[in-house]
Every structure is written in structure tokens, then in C-alpha cells.
Design a protein around this nucleic acid. Sequence first.
RNA 1: GCGCCUGUAGCUCAGUUGGAUAGAGCAACGGCCUUCUAAGCCGUGUGCCAGGGGUUCGAAUCCCUUCAGGCGCGCCA
Length: 563
Amino acid sequence: MDLKTALAEEIAKGAGISAEDAAEMLETPPDPKMGDAALPCFKLAKTLRKAPPAIAAELAGKIGKPEFISEIEVQGGYLNFFYDRKRYAQDTLTQLLAAGENWGSSDIGANKTIIIDYSSVNIAKPFHIGHLSSTAIGSALYKINRFLGYHVVGVNHLGDWGTQFGKLIAAYKMWGNDDEINRDSVAAMLKLYVRFHEEAEKDESLNDLGRAWFKKIEDGDKEAMRIFGWFKELTLREAKRVYEMLDVRFDSYAGESFYNDKIPAVLDELREKHLLVESEGAYVVMLEEENLPPAIILKKDGTTLYATRDLAAAEYRKKTYDFYKNLYVVAYQQNLHFKQLFAVLKKMGHDWADDCEHVAFGMVSLEDGTMSTRHGKIVLLEDVLSRAVEKTLSIINEKNPQLENKEQVAADIGIGAVIFSTLSQNRIKDITFSFDRVLNFDGETGPYVQYTHTRCASVIARHEENSESMDVSVLENDEAFAVLKLLSSFPQTVLAASEKNEPFYITRRLVELAQAFNKYYYEYRIIDEDVCATNARIALARAVKDTLKTGLGLLGIKAPSKM
RNA sequence: GCGCCUGUAGCUCAGUUGGAUAGAGCAACGGCCUUCUAAGCCGUGUGCCAGGGGUUCGAAUCCCUUCAGGCGCGCCA
């Protein structure tokens, strides 16, 4: 049982309210000088018909001071509690040292499956910074939920279906060069695609050619499938190179084409349930009761849409994985699409539609406007990563030229910086991409947290193991106590990140922990002649190191022990 | 026109279910390395929390409204 719960029970006894209510009322004061936990007595004023300060004073007398509380103070309408710091340090460190890098893990997800649909590469399209949010958020949620005991299935819902692939093949047949494609892969495909659009402006008939080739893909034509399969393979090879760098993994690459043969069954089901109605030549599901525009399921020409395949995909996922949650990490531009998708599923009688969730995030744009693949106005993710690594390497050469494994460390720090900056704000906020910002390694950044980790690692490495016990009284100072409180609440942070699908909760907490530790580290020497005191301070450093490493790991960031 | 989202310091952002004087980082300036990694620490200044109304003992937070910006709104994904 944690301290807050224990405190709530004591308060409940004294105030004659339920422990749940007391826990609900307890809060953390804005300044640690005011206390470690506070009970605002304003709400009690109504029922008790007394002024809040009087209630606080009265409660202070009624609540027997538990041994883990060192002091109870009345301040205005607040009743403030101070923890016994020595005891707090002892308890916290004991728990943390036993847990090590598992601090914050849990089994609440046992026997539950979470599907996470993220990154979703488009075939023949470059991997640019616009894909970073989905990839980084999805991957972090993957790691976070697995840490909480969930069985997680990462799905890369490939964008591998649509007339654009017919156009691409048509372009390849006209102007393609195998050597160039093998060498430049996606860049070469993009060139073909752009040229196709340029030429089609002049010659309309090219579009028919493109449609014809797409028809061949649909019909499983041998040549069309061979070329398309080749393009797909090359695109994935390129994407996987980036995934490798980012430490991102998937359990399934079932994309749009995978669901193609599962669509007829969905259409049958929609008809059977009388949901599919003809409208302006197309077939739609009306969503008037839900206050949403109709969802188009079949086009006038009888072909399917994105939404149709997503319906098939959702049903397939439920059938195959029986998920507890089904998350779509997709930009907020698709808000309406997902509302409609879930509404249709619900109308079909699938209660599990409520377990589907759109984890939306903001747009990424460039300083001079929106990105455009077709106009080549993009920043490739690989370029960002390699520039970050390069910069890191030059910093290492300047600050720590003797470092072993420089290249590996530079990769860990540089790439970590990019991921960290992506995950350091609320999902929903738009991002204007800036090299200056991403390549800044000072302050609230990935390298800062990693640096703190190496400080811990290095001080621990200097300490000789011994069998003397800890003297935790040296951790009663404000700086150490602040570190301990942050460490102690790390598990709640992980849980909140999972519940709200917000990896940045962890990012922020790591920054706070690093700041608190750096402050402590500056003020106090860790290793000195007093063995028992040193043991306690080393234990603190070890707990910080493990927690930072765990947290960074959950974000997909490495924690080198030297940098 | 309708719907959703965003608006907090010069810039980028925090701010738990409403709670005590609204906080960080960056940028600027000034300090701190013969001692555990200075990618660090300390200090200095900055706010009509977009505007207005309301609910409440108490509002950056909840409700209404106006403004600004973004996204979306039947055959793209």
C-alpha cells in the first residue's frame, strides 16, 4: 500500500468519511515547503457547517499521527502532512532496489491484448518526418503496454492498395529503369510517379492506362503482381532500415491489400443488417442518429474505399486477436473517418466498437509551409537521424574524444534526441519541424536525460561493493527527498501514459527526475569516507539510473553508460 | 455554412479529478570545473493564461459567447 492510501485511511477514520473520499480529496501542495500531501477542507465546510480553517484544526487533533507522518500543519483551510523522510527514503529505496529496471512494470494487462496500428508505411512513398509521430508514439505505446503486462500486437497497416499503384506500374513500363530502381528504390519510384502526373496533365489517356494496370493488380495478373511485389519489397526494405534505427518493431504487416478478399463478407453483413443503402449511385451507411455524415462504403463504380477496408480490418482483428483495446495511431485529419468507422461498427451490433480508439496527433509542417511528397517538399527522416548522429559525434569528439564505441554512442544519443523531441509534448499539438530545435541537446532533451543516466552510471562504477548497511538519514535533505518522491510515483506515470495513450507523460517525468537528480548531484558528494552514508547515496543513484533507463527504454531510447 | 481541435512568458511547451503566490526549457546576461562526466548547476527579467460573460468558497482548468489559427465535411487515403 502506498503512503497516500495509508494516509487517506487515517484521515477517513478521523473525519468520519470513507477512505475513497479521503483519497479523492488528497492532493499535492504546489510547494514542497507546504507539505507532502494536503487535505483541502473547503468541501467539508458545507456538511459540517463550519469554516474550513476550523475544520482543518479540528481534524488535526482527531487524526492520530501515523508513524510515517512527521508533522501535521494547519494552513488556512488546508491540512498539510509531512512525511517522515527517513522512513520514506528507506521504504522507497528498498522497493526500488528490489525492482531494479522493472520498477513501474505490472501485470494488470495479463491475458489482455492491445492492438496498436501505427506508422503505416505507404508503398513507393518516402519515409519523411511526417511519419515520425505515428511511428514514435505507436512504438512507445507498444513498449509501455507490454511493460504493463499486456499482450501487444503492433500492426503496420501498409498503404498498398489504390489506383496510384496502377499509375506507378504504367509509368515504370514506359520509362522505368531496373538498375535505377534497384539502386534508388523509393526515390526512383517517386520520380516515376511525379513524371506520370506531369505527363498525364498533357495526355489524359495515361490515366486510363493507370486504371488498366490497377485492374490487373486486382485481377492478380502475373506481371502486375511481380512488379508491384518488387516495389513493395524495396519500400519495406528502406522502411525497415529506419525502423531498425528507431528500435521499432511490428508483429504484422497486414495492410490494405491484405483485407481485400475479406471485403465481400463485410458487404454481405451490412446488407443483411439492412445498413447499406443506395445514395446518389453509391452505397452508404447512414449515420444521422449519430449526427455524422454518411459513410461511403461502395463507390458509384462498385469499387471499395479506405473505410470499407478498415471495417474488414477491424472485424479481422477482433476475430483473430480478440482485442481488449484496438488503437489507431493516426493524425487528427482522420478524426471524422474514425468516428464514422466506429459508428458503423456499433450499428452492426459490435459492442467492441467501444474498445476501438483513435489515438490522434497533430500535424507536422515545415517552417515554410506544409509538406508535399509530390512536389518534393519533404524532409526525409533518415536525413534528420543522420544529421543528429553526425552532430552528436562531433560533440563527442570535442568533449570526450577518448570514448570507446563512439559511433554506437553517437547513434544512441542522436537518434534518441529525435525521438525524445517528438515525444515531449501533448500528442494533439501541431509541430513545426525545425532542425535547430531537434538538434538542440541542452535543457529538456533526450541527451540531457541520457547524460544524467551516465552520471549515475559513472559514480556507481567508482564505488566499490561492500557489505556495510545504508545510512538513509543522509537522504533527508530537500534535494534527495525530491528525487525520491519522483522515483516513487514513476509507476503511476507509466499507468497514466497507458490509460491516456500519452507517452509524453513519461518524457516529462524523466526530465523532472533528471533535473532533481542533477540538482542533488551538484549539492552533495556521493562517494566519501563514510561507508554507510555512501551506500545510501549510491543506492539513490542506482535507483535513478535504473528508472531513467527504464523510462527511456519505454520511449524507444537507449541509455548508454558513457557519453 | 456546419463539425472537431488549438490559443498560457520573445520562442517551444508543462500545468492530474477545479485548489494555496501560474511553472519549465530555449534565447539574453552574470556566476560555478586541481574533487564522483560543465551535454551540468546557480542567479537575473518576462505573463489582461486570446477577449467578454457566467457557475463556484475558489477557474488557465467547467458552461455560454466572440475572435484568431489548424483540420475535416459522399465517391482520395
